[in-house]
Nucleic acid binder design. Sequence first.
DNA 1: TATTGACTTAAAGTTCACTTTAACTTGTAT
DNA 2: ATACAAGTTAAAGTGAACTTTAAGTCAATA
Lengths: 149, 149
Amino acid sequence: MSYSIKEVADMMNVAPSTLRYYDSMGILPNVKKVNGRRIFEDKDFKWLRVLNCMKNINMPISKIKEYVELAKKGDSTLKERYNMILEQKKVIEKELKALQDCYKEFEYKEWYYETAIKAGTEKVVLNITSTLPTLEIDKIPKNERKDEK
Amino acid sequence: MSYSIKEVADMMNVAPSTLRYYDSMGILPNVKKVNGRRIFEDKDFKWLRVLNCMKNINMPISKIKEYVELAKKGDSTLKERYNMILEQKKVIEKELKALQDCYKEFEYKEWYYETAIKAGTEKVVLNITSTLPTLEIDKIPKNERKDEK
DNA sequence: TATTGACTTAAAGTTCACTTTAACTTGTAT
DNA sequence: ATACAAGTTAAAGTGAACTTTAAGTCAATA
């Protein structure tokens, strides 16, 4: 099977121009062209799946390109690519943790507003602080100082 | 306790100029100023924690500002703010799911490279496709067509 | 008293990731 | 045959989120 740029764009939820842009940046390697038109085939989808992941974790295009260039060089870069994957796995773990903490913060906010709406006013909940450790802000920094009041 | 802009910037892992920028965009409400200098107090950290969350889930500043403006208006906007929170919770759920799928994809990649490195070549794993449903790409679109080869 | 360092604003500059535009080609339908 | 839809490139434009710069203020220290 083969697919046009529009079809692939729809599948990936992006504009065709975005895919052209990706291609121009060199992160859509080996896409076949017939009469100057891009034709996406099954083999391309393997990479599109990975690309989609990399975009999801906000990997910059420059880094994605780095990976693509390594892959093009073949077996001699296996270890380098492996290390990139391990590094990115750590990034995802961090992001997952951050997102989960955010989720808890928002669950707290949900309760907060439910309580406030029932009471008709925020005042009843305003001085209850969420005890969720979303931010390192809870740690007091070294160069702490007294209130100058 | 009170903190300088530099101290808060360090706690939040951003540049002081970023906090000034946030302030100029109106998403650091009610920060005290002494002799023109920003002084962050305990009450500000409640909001900074939430702001940090909102940044984490890539909420645009314009939307964060919307929320701040609603909060400024007081109890009459409780329901609106509640709805915003519910909506954002859904966004987080989606993002979490996407990230978890990416994590699986990267776990597969980890195995892929471990196997390839052991064998000294990618060829042994190259035609094994991950079966993880990271992308809707696996669904064949309506306007599918035959290979023109 | 002079200097240093951390702050201030307003405005301009930068970066990234697209998106749009303009001029053109190609394949399909009438 | 002609029109139209969908593709193409190169280059310019956009928007968001900072970041840098320039010129200045203020408090503490030598």
